Computed example of a mutant assay.
Amino acid sequence: MVGNAMTVTVVTMKRLRDDIQAQMSLEKTTLALGATPRQATLQQVKRSLVIALSPIIDNTKTVGLISLSGAMTGLIIGGASLVEAIQLQMVVMNMLIGASTMSSIMSTYFCWPNFFTKAYQLETKVFSIE
Rank of each mutant, 00 (worst) to 15 (best):
D19N: 14
I20Y: 03
Q21K: 15
A22P: 04
Q23L: 06
Q23D: 07
M24T: 11
M24G: 11
L26T: 04
T30G: 05
L31S: 11
A32M: 11
A35W: 05
A35N: 11
P37E: 01
P37H: 03
R38A: 15
R38P: 14
R38N: 14
Q39K: 08
Q44P: 00
Q44N: 09
K46I: 10
K46H: 12
K46T: 03
R47F: 12
S48Y: 08
S48W: 09
V50Q: 11
I51A: 15
L53F: 09
I56S: 15
I57V: 14
D58W: 00
T62H: 06
T62A: 07
T62W: 07
G64F: 04
G64T: 00
G64I: 04
L65K: 05
S67Q: 14
L68V: 09
S69Q: 13
A71C: 01
M72C: 04
T73C: 06
T73P: 00
G74K: 06
G78Q: 05
A80H: 09
V83T: 12
A85D: 05
I86L: 07
Q87S: 13
Q87R: 08
Q89D: 04
Q89N: 10
M93A: 11
M93P: 06
M93R: 00
N94C: 12
M95N: 11
L96S: 11
I97A: 13
G98M: 05
G98I: 04
A99K: 01
A99T: 12
A99L: 07
T101S: 12
M102C: 09
S103L: 13
Y109D: 03
Y109E: 03
C111H: 02
C111W: 00
W112Q: 12
F115D: 06
F115H: 05
F116W: 02
F116V: 05
T117L: 05
K118S: 09
A119R: 11
Q121W: 00
L122E: 00
T124I: 03
T124V: 09
T124Y: 11
K125D: 13
F127P: 06
F127T: 04
F127R: 03
